[in-house]
Write a protein that binds this DNA or RNA. Structure first.
Length: 260
DNA sequence: ATGGTGGATGCTCCA
């Protein structure tokens, strides 16, 4: 089973990109974040034409929004809300007995101080709540947790560890929170399973660079994690960096894992 | 130290 996660930054603007992605990787399952569309206006026909007739969508007007597109029928579709907000960040479905979680963690604003920045406080509370919830689940079940986690955990998941320590997405307090979430079920980072920690990896490049590829100041914010029962099935993982150059681009690129 | 861009919306918010 080949599965992809991608923060598309508006699904309606990225339909041709999704067509390219399908042609390139032929994924069985595509998990999307920042769809930025209500469920009524979700472009279902375009997905059906690509072979994804089975959709789970959880969207709102303008902001956030997650979706799961599948070639085969999805079971037990449901969603979760966090921190008392109904803001379309967590969608769940099952395929082939695997429970798939599509998650969009709050970005957290610019100031990395929860006392001065409500968005950063919300991000930390969100990560704590999700970690607490998963800690009560059964790690012996085959589960996949994917999405835009908005945290780059390793020093090599950012272009400069030292210069990013006070930048939201790579501060120690966020990295600790994400580590606690990872520990909740002993989640395995499926991409790092194949790539040594010395090697830099990015899945996001800012729009605010004159030349994203030349400056290459990226961050790895998008992740695919699996529970221990799925570890023996990890066959391949890829980050499609070239998609950052597809016009007009999302600032995130697709991340893929193949489960044997 | 600063500002830089892009998307959805509608005279601004969020990333």
């Amino acid at each position: 089973m080949k599965l992809v996660t991608w923060n598309v930054n508006s699904v309606r603007l990225r339909l041709e990109h999704l067509q390219r992605l399908e042609a390139l990787w032929r994924p069985d399952l595509i998990c999307l974040q920042e769809t930025k569309v209500t469920d009524e206006l979700f472009p279902r026909e375009a997905f059906a034409a690509l072979g994804y007739a089975h959709l789970a969508v959880l969207g709102m007007k303008g902001y956030n929004g997650v979706a799961i597109a599948s070639r085969r029928p999805l079971a037990l579709v449901r969603h979760q809300t966090w921190c008392g907000r109904d803001d379309c960040r967590h969608l769940i479905a099952e395929l082939d007995g695997i429970e798939v979680h599509c998650l969009y963690v709050p970005a957290g604003g610019d100031i990395p101080d929860p006392a001065a920045n409500d968005k950063f406080a919300h991000k930390l509370e969100f990560l704590d709540a999700v970690a607490g919830w998963f800690a009560g689940q059964d790690a012996a079940r085959p589960m996949v947790l994917v999405g835009d986690f908005n945290v780059a955990p390793l020093p090599t998941d950012v272009w400069s560890h030292k210069q990013m320590l006070k930048v939201v997405s790579h501060t120690p307090v966020e990295v600790e929170r994400l580590a606690a979430l990872q520990a909740s079920l002993g989640w395995i980072d499926a991409v790092r399973h194949f790539v040594p920690p010395e090697q830099h990896l990015y899945s996001w490049w800012s729009y605010r660079a004159a030349d994203w590829a030349a400056s290459n100041r990226g961050r790895r914010l998008d992740h695919i994690w699996v529970t221990p029962p799925l570890a023996p099935r990890l066959a391949r993982a890829e980050i499609l960096a070239e998609a950052r150059g597809w016009q007009p681009p999302s600032d995130h690129v697709p991340v893929m894992v193949d489960l044997a």
